[in-house]
């Protein structure tokens, strides 16, 4: 238990100590929110799909959590580089505790980043709403926020664990760039963060359904503005997203623990 706690604490301390980085890392998602949100807004409205800021905000929150959590796992590359990794590898505790502590710490940090981005979205004009009936006027739904936190937490854990698996297997900067271009960016762009996943062609539909983040974004968007990907009703959608994310979290946590336990230096 001590090892999990101290590794978690290390990640959280790092976060609070680099305030500059904390602000800077919100810059990119804010740019996406404002440039795309207001840029595509008119054409989105003209297509009859409603307010684009409302649509894109949950996606941008998901994006913030994705990048923050996956990078926290890949930060193991720097620990490998600066040697601290070895201190944890020879410690007389099961390696699974070390990696769990790190992953939970990274997920905690990613959740905080997501919350900050949520505030930025509120400032940009985003409001969580509840649509009582099609066509009826929507009402503000602040109670959606704690429910949305469930999905923020699940996205954070899934991708912190995926990042940790990647961090346990890559050894140099080339590997990092390959993962960035062929894993992280596709996960983001194919998640439905920026556009609706309904009415896509069959190939795109299958690809987007294989994207873990799609279920996180769908959950966030469903909870926050009542816009779900599948037309089976909100309860079913909620459960589907929740179960898929929980399953993926278990798989990725297991994978990261296995890969980390095999590290030799």
């Amino acid at each position: 238990m001590g090892a999990i706690y101290i590794m978690w604490l290390r990640e959280v301390k790092r976060y609070f100590r680099s305030r500059a980085q904390l602000i800077v890392s919100l810059g990119q998602p804010t740019l996406y929110l404002l440039a795309l949100g207001f840029g595509f807004g008119p054409i989105f409205a003209r297509a009859g799909a409603g307010n684009y800021i409302q649509f894109i905000a949950p996606g941008i929150i998901g994006m913030t959590v994705l990048f923050s959590s996956i990078f926290s796992g890949m930060a193991m590359l720097w620990d490998r580089q600066f040697g601290f990794l070895k201190e944890t590898l020879v410690a007389p505790v099961p390696r699974i505790n070390i990696i769990f502590g790190r992953t939970l710490g990274g997920a905690t940090v990613a959740m905080m980043q997501g919350l900050l981005m949520f505030i930025v979205c509120l400032i940009a004009g985003f409001r969580p709403v509840h649509q009582h009936a099609p066509g009826a006027p929507a009402t503000y739904n602040w109670l959606a926020i704690p429910v949305a936190l469930i999905f923020v937490a699940m996205i954070a854990i899934v991708f912190a664990a995926l990042g940790a698996s990647a961090g346990s297997s890559i050894k140099d900067m080339q590997g990092f760039q390959v993962l960035m271009n062929f894993l992280v960016m596709p996960i983001f762009f194919l998640s439905g963060a920026l556009y609706p996943l309904k009415n896509l062609g069959p190939v795109m539909t299958w690809i987007t359904r294989a994207d873990p983040l799609a279920y996180g974004i769908d959950g966030l968007r469903g909870v926050l503005i009542g816009n779900w990907q599948f037309s089976y009703g909100p309860q079913f959608n909620f459960l589907l997203d929740f179960c898929i994310l929980a399953g993926l979290a278990a798989i990725f946590l297991g994978t990261s623990a296995w890969l980390f336990s095999r590290i030799e230096v």
């Binding site: 101290i6 290390r10 100590r17 600066f82 040697g83 601290f84 070895k86 410690a91």
Partner: peptide, 25 residues
């Protein structure tokens, strides 16, 4: 004590010692 440093440079000296102490029960 490794050939390359294995300290956490983003933490204080005391915190590095404490982290080690906790990992070693």
């Amino acid at each position: 004590v490794f050939q390359d440093p294995s300290l956490d440079s983003e933490q204080t000296a005391y915190e590095n010692m404490e982290l080690h102490g906790i990992l070693y029960h």
